[in-house]
Design a protein around this nucleic acid. Structure first.
Length: 828
RNA sequence: GCCGAAGUGGCGGAACUGGCAGACGCGCUACGUUCAGGGCGUAGUGGGCAUUCGCCCGUGGGAGUUCAAAUCUCCCCUUCGGCACCA
């Protein structure tokens, strides 16, 4: 009988099959009754805050959720076994547009549909066997939570971090609401993909730009490079100079540039159509043309304006400005390629050294003046802009400088002569948090005709969402139609006043929930500072890469702002971040239209949650995602069945007399090697290779059991089986618990210590040395560990295969890598 | 266009700081099994050549460094992700 012969025996001898659903139901009930995963600060264990990005209340836990929560749970269970007090909470991101749109469609109030969805998802979560501390559950749509979201707004408002401004905002005509810049993807709404337009509205903003520099600093954070790069790009810091040009009439016109070294190459200025000085800087004969141009650009959507390969457009204002360094006259144009929200909304046009300026100049016949000599340039006309570095020419006293040096020298010159100042510019804009929608946290602001903008006094929080509102597809917030909500009294003068009817962006809700989890039942304050001091920062945050530039940036900002307001002590919310990949199906993204959506519930019902969990972990490296295969999952199911049969069949067998010590040593080696591997793998989230290691151990144990080696029942055997179950516990928590209890070990396996390993027991007594001749593998030697290099070389040279490969040639060199290989080099 | 990551059997994927390429699993082939129920077991499974001993080729393509390259360097190709008129 060979490797798996045992299983035949087992199959015949043991009637029991792997009935996962039954085992899982049993233990889920047990764990819940015992509140096995409940944690509090009364502990002398070190803390470990393990957080998964909380789900939106869509009403269904799909495979992507499992792919987030199951491996994360395995890691948290491992940490618990390593002696940490693990806090692993769960909640629901429960405000948002879909519930409101559904209400308009089917009349079911968002509060009702959302609570139903939460109920359903809670049940689905329980079926996964994920060890959440349910005593900390929260939902952002409950007054007990959003009261403190409103409190957060008020703190920001008092600190000057929240302000109201009439500003051009991204408007989604389909969602009937404004969007933050982060929510506009390629000129389209991130949610519904409609083309985004501009609207001027009075909006509330959070001043995230105040933290731009600090947000660029990732010191002390163990975050994926990818996310750091994305945030860095998003913030988009650039250093340059703001140079003040003057019109011939004497008006000041500052421009921002990162290339002051090209200042002598300026041949025009361009203003954004939205620039406030445009009307004043237009001569009467150009008035009409400019006016028409502004009207045209205003009607365009973001996509139209940003279309790739679009020809540059613009109009001349009739006004000229003076280059402060050269004294030259340059025409002032209006052009929509200049963004009103970046820099000063005006640029200096240097066609020779900027691609966009070059295109613009080519279109309108403006001169191109070379001031940085391209390589091998002999004064000829440029075919395209030269944006690289080079030597400065045609720039008076600055000629001959290298362009990077010239940037320094010219910047200094500009400052000395008070022509401008060095400045840092960011791409990042302030966070627009107003939404013209119902299903969100109301912004706690009151407008009084006499007293102006008034903050709702904190003791009046929460400003409750009225539940008896009408949902009509008018595009107007139901709050505006609710008289009881709208009409109020001014907290200052007591006179009649109206409430702000906008609600907050749901990203505000999720920008502080990790703090609420630390003390979720606080009723008099958002969180208990002592609890927050104990648990924060989050030790391991896990979620999707799609939150790289929104949620993760907002959460960092809110944490830093609260720190500066004295409410928390940490600088960063998430010490370690891991972003899992995407589960594909048939190599493609799952989608309903493609019909390749995998429903985990079906597999849970038949094969069990442990199989689904373990399979997802086995698919491939977690951060790279993997391809789901309905047949592949059977491999994992078979593996778990094999463990079950192996354990149940052998545990009553006694060790025979006269057993072989070397086999016991072998099994010990196997055990310790597997523990080492599993420990290193799970630390680095390499679940796929961790499980492969457990499979190898299981197969090896089965082989030993079937060979009548006399090892079953020995102390080493028992230790091996015990260790295997402990290593399996994070991966397949129900099965491990079941077998643990069958072997008579004390409940619960999830409260046991992770097995340790002894490096000295892993060392192999024999080592395999690869013998190469001229780098090609020719033979292998098995020698006792500790055999000297000289001995190995002698043995190698004596082998028939090696001699044949050398074929009498002269040996010029022998490379010996201890414990690994010998490489014999022939020839001169 | 710019930035980032990745290309390994029929498939998902292994391979520590350069040292046996293909662990583990799926699939497939053959055989065995009183195997109802998504069975179980044994052997095999990168390609080519060879009756055997074996030999040659092989990690997207091309060059290079090295005794030795999936791994390091350069160039190119492809795929995926991010950003995209940011001055």
């Amino acid at each position: 009988m060979g490797v798996k012969g045992l299983f035949r025996e087992v199959n015949q001898g043991v009637a029991e099959r792997y009935n996962a659903p039954e085992i899982e139901r049993k233990w889920q009930l047990q764990w819940e009754a015992d509140e096995l995963y409940r944690v509090d600060t009364a502990t002398d264990r070190p803390k470990w805050y393990a957080l998964d990005m909380f789900p939106y209340t869509s009403g269904d836990l799909h495979i992507g959720h499992w792919y987030n929560y199951a491996p994360s749970d395995a890691h948290a269970r491992y940490k618990r076994m390593r002696g940490f007090a693990v806090m692993k909470p769960i909640g629901f991101d429960a405000f948002g547009l879909p519930a409101e749109n559904a209400a308009i469609r089917n009349g079911i109030p968002p509060a009702l549909s959302t609570m139903r969805n939460i109920h359903r998802m809670r049940e689905q979560f329980r079926s996964t066997g994920v060890g959440f501390d349910w005593s900390r559950e929260l939902a952002t749509c409950l007054p007990s939570y959003y009261r403190w979201t409103q409190w957060l707004f008020l703190q920001f408002y008092k600190a000057g971090l929240a302000y109201r401004a009439l500003a051009p905002a991204n408007w989604c005509p389909s969602c009937q609401t404004v969007l933050a810049n982060e929510q506009v993807v390629e000129g389209r709404c991130e949610r519904c993909e409609s083309a985004v337009t501009k609207r001027y509205l009075n909006q509330w903003f959070f001043q995230i730009t105040r933290y731009a520099d600090e947000l660029l600093n990732f010191d002390g954070l163990d975050w994926p490079e990818r996310v750091r790069v994305m945030q860095t790009n998003w913030i988009g810091r650039s250093e340059g100079v703001e140079i003040v040009f003057r019109t011939e009439g004497g008006s000041e016109l500052p421009v921002f540039t990162t290339r002051p070294d090209t200042i002598f190459g300026v041949t025009f200025l361009a203003l954004a159509p939205e620039h406030p000085l445009v009307p004043a800087l237009t001569t009467s004969e150009h008035q009409q043309e400019v006016q028409e141009y502004i009207e045209t650009t205003r009607g365009e959507t973001e996509i139209e304006r940003q279309a790739i390969g679009r020809e540059k457009t613009g109009v001349f204002t009739g006004i000229w400005a003076i280059n402060p360094l050269t004294g030259q006259r340059v025409p002032i144009w209006v052009a929509d390629y200049v963004l009103p929200t970046y820099g000063t909304g005006a640029v200096m046009g240097v066609p020779a050294h900027d691609e966009r300026d070059f295109e613009f100049a080519a279109r309108f016949g403006l001169p191109v003046r070379v001031v940085i000599a391209p390589p091998n340039w002999q004064g000829q006309t440029l075919e395209s802009a030269y944006v690289g570095e080079g030597t400065i020419v045609n720039s008076g006293q600055f000629d001959g400088l290298a362009s990077p040096r010239a940037r320094e020298v010219i910047s200094a010159y500009i400052e000395q002569h008070h022509l401008g100042t060095r400045r840092v510019q960011y791409r990042l804009r302030d966070w627009l948090i107003s939404r013209q929608r119902y299903w969100g946290a109301p912004i706690p602001i009151i407008y009084c005709d006499r007293c102006g903008i008034q903050a709702v006094p904190e003791e009046q929080l929460p400003v409750r969402l009225p539940l008896d509102v009408e949902f009509r597809p008018t595009g107007e917030s139901p709050l505006r139609l609710s008289k009881t909500f709208l009409q109020t009294t001014c907290p200052s003068c007591g006179g009649p006043a109206t409430r702000e009817t906008d609600t907050m962006d749901t990203f505000v809700d999720s920008a502080w929930y990790f703090l609420r989890f630390c003390s979720p039942h606080e009723s008099a304050r958002p969180f208990d500072p002592e609890q927050v001091a104990f648990w924060m920062p989050v030790d391991q945050y896990i979620g999707g890469i799609e939150h790289a530039t929104m949620h993760l940036l907002y959460a960092r900002f809110v944490t830093k702002a609260l720190r500066d307001l004295g409410y928390v002590k940490v600088d960063e919310p998430f010490r370690r971040l891991f972003t899992q990949g995407l589960v594909l199906s048939g190599g493609l993204k799952m989608s309903k239209s493609r019909g390749n959506v995998v429903n985990p519930d079906d597999f849970v019902k038949t094969l069990g949650a442990d199989t689904v969990r373990a399979y997802l972990m086995f698919l491939g490296p977690w951060d790279q995602g993997g391809d789901w295969n309905d047949r592949g999952i059977m491999g994992i199911h078979r593996f778990l069945s094999r463990v079950l049969r192996l354990v149940l069949d052998t545990h009553e067998r006694d060790a025979p007399a006269g057993r072989a010590p070397e086999i016991e040593q072998g099994i010990q080696r196997l055990t310790h090697r597997t523990i080492k591997r599993a420990t290193e793998d799970i630390e680095r989230f390499r679940f796929n290779t961790m499980i492969a290691g457990l499979m190898e151990m299981t197969n090896a144990l089965a082989r030993l059991a079937s060979e009548s080696s006399g090892v079953v029942g020995t102390p080493s055997w028992k230790e091996a089986v015990r260790s295997l179950l402990l290593l399996l516990a994070p991966v397949a928590p129900h099965l491990a618990e079941e077998l643990w209890s069958r072997l008579g070990f004390p409940y619960s396996i999830h409260q046991q210590s992770w097995p340790g390993y002894d490096e000295s027991l892993i060392a192999e007594p024999m080592m395999t040395i690869v013998v190469q001749v001229n780098g090609k593998m020719r033979d292998k030697l098995v020698v006792p560990a500790g055999t000297s290099g000289a001995e190995v070389e002698a043995l190698a040279l004596d082998r028939a295969r090696v001699r044949r490969a050398i074929a009498g040639a002269m040996i010029s060199n022998i490379v010996y890598v201890p414990n690994r290989l010998v490489n014999i080099i022939t020839g001169p």
